[in-house]
Simulated scan of single mutants.
Amino acid sequence: MKPNPVIAESDLPTGPRGHVNTLPTLQVATEDGEVVDGVWAAGDNAQIPDLAKGEGAWCAPSAQHAVRQARLLGANMAASSRAVPSESTSTRTWARSRRSA
């Protein structure tokens, strides 16, 4: 799935396919891993590492991933506002967020 054309017009860091580059925490980051403070991304426009598959793998732009990412995104944004460390995307995190929903 192609990202929204607005992404290309922004100054957000993007990956090789034009999606917003993110860390497993859903924080937007440069290719060097430098976090763009206060900027988060999830869903079809985000390039999110798939930790279950390993280095260089990305989460597919699917509704299933987007729903899970939304829960994690909300939790991490709230944690960030309280200066609590963010969680990463992983199978364990998805399972934990699903049980608490």
Rank of each mutant, 00 (worst) to 15 (best):
S81R: 08
R96A: 13
D37V: 04
A78V: 08
P85E: 05
R99A: 14
S88N: 09
E87C: 05
H19T: 10
V67S: 13
T91D: 10
H65M: 13
L26K: 01
A70F: 03
G54P: 04
T22K: 05
P3A: 07
W40K: 09
A29L: 06
P13F: 00
R99F: 14
N45E: 04
R82H: 11
A78S: 13
N45D: 15
S100E: 15
L12E: 00
V28C: 06
E55R: 14
D11P: 00
G38V: 05
E9T: 14
S86H: 05
D50H: 02
G54V: 09
W58A: 06
D44Q: 10
D11G: 15
E9Q: 15
A63L: 13
P5N: 02
G15C: 06
V28H: 01
E9H: 04
W40C: 11
E55W: 03
A46M: 06
A66Q: 04
M1S: 14
R82F: 09
L73N: 03
G74F: 00
R99I: 08
G54L: 05
V67W: 00
R68Q: 15
P13D: 04
S100A: 15
H19M: 11
Q47F: 14
S80C: 05
P24H: 06
R92F: 09
A83D: 11
M77A: 10
S81K: 03
D11C: 11
K2G: 14
N45Y: 06
R99D: 14
V84E: 13
V20Q: 04
H65W: 13
L26G: 02
S88P: 04
N4D: 15
P13N: 08
P24S: 12
D44T: 06
P49A: 12
L73E: 03
G43C: 07
G54A: 07
A95Q: 14
A75V: 05
D44P: 04
Q47N: 09
A63W: 12
D44W: 02
G56H: 10
P3N: 03
K53G: 00
T25G: 11
I7W: 12
V67Q: 12
R82N: 10
W58Y: 12
I7Q: 08
M1L: 12
Q27A: 13
